[in-house]
C-alpha cells in the first residue's frame, strides 16, 4: 500500500485506478490463458469441493477455487479453510496431504 492509497482511504476516495486495472487484467488473463470456459471451471470447482468435503469439513463461505497466473504460468489455486477433519478417518486410498493441512 502506498502513501497515496492511505490518503485516498482516509478521505474516503476511490483507490487509484492503476491497481484496479492490474487486478482485473490478472484475472481475465488467467482465464484467457487457460482456455477454460467458465462453465467447465464452475463444474470443476463444485467437484473439487465435493471431494474435499468427503474428508474434511470445509468453510464453504470462505473457500475459493480460482485461477491465478504468474510468469505466463497459470495455476489452479484452491483455498479451502478446514473446520475439522471428518470422522471416521477416510478410506485407505485417501490423500494424506489433505489431513496434514488441517488446522483443527
Amino acid at each position: 500500500m502506498t502513501l497515496r492509497d492511505v490518503i485516498n482511504k482516509l478521505l474516503g476516495r476511490q483507490p487509484a485506478s492503476a491497481n484496479t486495472a492490474k487486478e482485473r487484467l490478472q484475472l481475465v488473463l488467467a482465464h484467457d490463458r487457460s482456455d477454460l470456459n467458465p462453465e467447465l471451471l464452475q463444474q470443476m470447482r463444485r467437484e473439487i469441493l465435493e471431494v474435499v468435503s468427503r474428508y474434511v469439513e470445509i468453510d464453504l463461505e470462505e473457500g475459493d477455487v480460482t485461477l491465478e497466473t504468474e510468469d505466463r504460468v497459470t495455476a489452479l489455486v484452491a483455498n479451502l479453510p478446514i473446520r475439522r477433519a471428518k470422522l471416521p478417518p477416510p478410506p485407505a486410498e485417501a490423500a494424506p496431504a489433505l489431513e496434514a493441512n488441517a488446522n483443527s
Binding site: A16, A18, N19, L25
Partner: peptide, 18 residues
C-alpha cells in the same frame, strides 16, 4: 498519469506479459 497511479506502471505491464 503513471505518477498519479491512474495508469498501469511499467513494471505492471512487464510483469503481466513476462
Amino acid at each position: 498519469m503513471m505518477a498519479n497511479q491512474e495508469m498501469l506502471a511499467v513494471s505492471d505491464v512487464t510483469d503481466i506479459l513476462a
